[in-house]
């Protein structure tokens, strides 16, 4: 197996150009998602989906002027946050993508083996095997994978598996003009990310934090992780994702107990005095 490859998306230098979205669509020949005007921000893509494998989120946080002339953040809950929004507000932009989890919910629950782990440590759907059962869709704690309804199969980011095999970097990382999307060996990216956070903290940007870099999180670490400037949920990311299969042994134990209880209830109904109590017939 080759080295585990990944993405480090440094949102502090994302300029929201959406070149990653376009490059992904073009290289992977993804169908359009219709022309939608969300009317919330410059984001008219909305969310990751079967035909959207990179999604740039735009969060516009406006200052709230308070009585004493200071500003709070756009949430109106006072200056409790460890950062100040300037008088002009601030924009957060972040290019979201499949996390290629170490413990991937989609991969765990796929019944056909269509989803598999590649030699690069990424998670990919084999479209010639997927039968569109749809189980991977609610199993993803990030809402990444989806079924293309006209096609019937599940689709998601492959981290450009074809380009990787050809020794190229993924299309989104190649197109990113600010290197907000960095591609490389995961270990190397983690070191680079830690250095970047330290640098930002030294500059007083103490709100900078990494998301998904730790192998100790609920999905065993993400193959695509992020540097964020606010809580993950502000970007539409789950704050503490856990792979659903982590509790699977316990689930089977409870189901086993229920199955045994069921058998016991039926046995009781037949072998107890049910006929005398409940019917007039009785066994012959």
């Amino acid at each position: 197996m080759a080295e585990r490859m990944g993405f480090f998306t440094d949102t502090s230098i994302c300029i929201g150009c959406k070149a990653c979205e376009v490059a992904c669509k073009e290289w992977n020949q993804l169908p359009d998602d219709g022309f939608v005007f969300e009317a919330t921000s410059y984001d008219n893509t909305g969310a990751l989906g079967a035909s959207t494998w990179r999604h740039v989120a735009f969060i516009e946080q406006q200052p709230v002027w308070t009585a004493d002339g200071t500003t709070g953040d756009g949430d109106g809950d006072g200056g409790e946050k460890p950062f100040q929004i300037g008088p002009d507000g601030r924009w957060l932009m972040s290019s979201d993508v499949c996390k290629h989890c170490t413990n991937a919910g989609c991969l765990d629950v796929c019944p056909t083996g269509a989803l598999f782990r590649t030699e690069f440590g990424t998670v990919v759907v084999q479209s010639d095997i997927c039968n569109g059962c749809g189980y991977c869709v609610p199993a993803c704690p990030f809402g990444v994978i989806a079924r293309r309804e006209d096609d019937g199969r599940a689709w998601k980011c492959t981290m450009c598996y074809d380009r990787l095999r050809g020794g190229l970097e993924p299309a989104c990382a190649k197109a990113c003009p600010t290197d907000s999307i960095q591609f490389g060996p995961l270990d190397e990216l983690r070191e680079r990310a830690a250095a970047r956070v330290a640098e930002l903290h030294a500059l007083g940007r103490t709100e900078a934090r990494l998301y998904g870099e730790s192998p100790d999180d609920g999905v065993g670490g993400m193959g695509a992780f992020f540097l964020l400037l606010d809580e993950p949920e502000v970007y539409g990311l789950p704050p503490d994702p856990v792979v659903p299969t982590r509790n699977l042994p316990a689930m089977w134990r409870w189901a086993g107990a229920a199955a045994l209880t069921m058998a016991g209830a039926v046995a009781l109904s037949f072998l107890g005095s049910s006929d005398r109590l409940l019917g007039r017939g009785g066994p012959r």
């Binding site: 019944p111 189980y135 199969r153």
Partner: peptide, 23 residues
């Protein structure tokens, strides 16, 4: 009938996968 690709229903028995309750 629920499958996105009903003709591929036999792929359900392509493998036995304990981590997938559907398998």
């Amino acid at each position: 009938a629920e499958l996105g690709r009903p003709t591929r229903f036999l792929n359900m028995l392509r493998m036995f996968k304990p981590s997938s309750p559907m398998s």
